[in-house]
């Protein structure tokens, strides 16, 4: 589904992604963890080219990621992305947030888009808020709307960049529950998170990054019980308390 080969990225002189090789198969859930600044977000964002890359290759369903224009937009429409800060469109209602892209990009009729949107909003449990504006919702509700907005495009894969890091503790689970359901439904997902219990539960593989490098790719059972590197062990220790 996603193949990343020998990927390198720099911010000026700062080498932030170093020889990244990673693939995500159809239906697989890959969780990326690692200390702050290790390049997790950057990696996630290169997959739909919100960040450009300096060398290497990214293939989506075997096709190289286009550099720009309509082709890039078309690929992006199939890759859902959920951000730490939700990024709901502030000037649109919840319903409009979900219907906008299906109407504008997939050229669905308003009626069809609305019906689908209401179904998705119901699925994530915020259908009663459809006519409100984002700022009138709690963080947890906003993030669930953001997930529904992505799902409305019928994505083949979804990227999550720390979807619960901006949430109050009591709202984290409502978002994780939605994500767990998605995983159970067979959605292909690449998730950056600090929620280790969640990672244990849903992931097929865990990717550990440090200083721009992937140090380890392992099953969650293995990774959390006997991590392969000292760095990973230290990291797991450090987040326990």
């Amino acid at each position: 589904m996603i193949e990343i080969k020998k990927l390198n990225k720099y911010y000026g002189d700062h080498h932030v992604l170093k020889d990244i090789d990673l693939s995500v198969d159809k239906g697989e859930v890959v969780v990326i963890i690692g200390p702050s600044g290790s390049g997790k977000s950057t990696l996630c964002r290169t997959v739909n080219r919100l960040e450009t890359i300096d060398s290497g290759e990214i293939l989506i369903e075997g096709e190289p990621l286009p550099e720009d224009g309509k082709d890039l937009a078309a690929i992006r429409s199939k890759i859902g992305m959920v951000f730490q800060s939700f990024n709901l469109f502030a000037h649109k209602t919840i319903l409009e947030n979900v219907t906008l892209a299906p109407v504008e990009v997939l050229h669905k009729s308003h009626a069809e888009a609305k019906e689908e949107a209401m179904r998705l909003l119901k699925r994530v449990g915020v259908d009663s808020q459809a006519d409100k504006y984002p700022i009138q919702l709690s963080g947890g509700q906003q993030q669930r709307v953001a997930i529904a907005r992505s799902l409305a495009m019928n994505p083949k894969v979804m990227l999550f960049d720390e979807p619960t890091s901006a949430l109050d503790p009591e709202m984290i689970n409502e978002v994780l529950d939605v994500m767990t359901e998605l995983a159970d439904d067979g959605m292909t997902m690449m998730i950056v998170t600090h929620e280790m219990n969640f990672a244990k539960q849903v992931s097929d593989r865990v990717v550990f990054m440090d200083d721009g490098r992937i140090l380890e790719i392992n099953t969650p059972e293995k990774f959390f019980s006997e991590p392969g590197t000292d760095r990973a062990r230290d990291f797991l220790e450090s987040i326990k308390n």
Binding site: N48, L50, G69, K70, A73, A74, I75, R76, S77, K78, I79, G80, M81, F83, S85, N87, L88, F89, A90, L100, A101, E104, V105, A146, R149, S150, M153
Partner: peptide, 22 residues
């Protein structure tokens, strides 16, 4: 906020539409 633009791009909207609609 630049997240508004990024969210719209990630939904597959082209730059011109992102600017005019979002």
């Amino acid at each position: 906020p630049k997240g508004q633009r990024e969210a719209a791009l990630s939904l597959g909207m082209v730059e011109r539409k992102v600017f005019l609609k979002i």
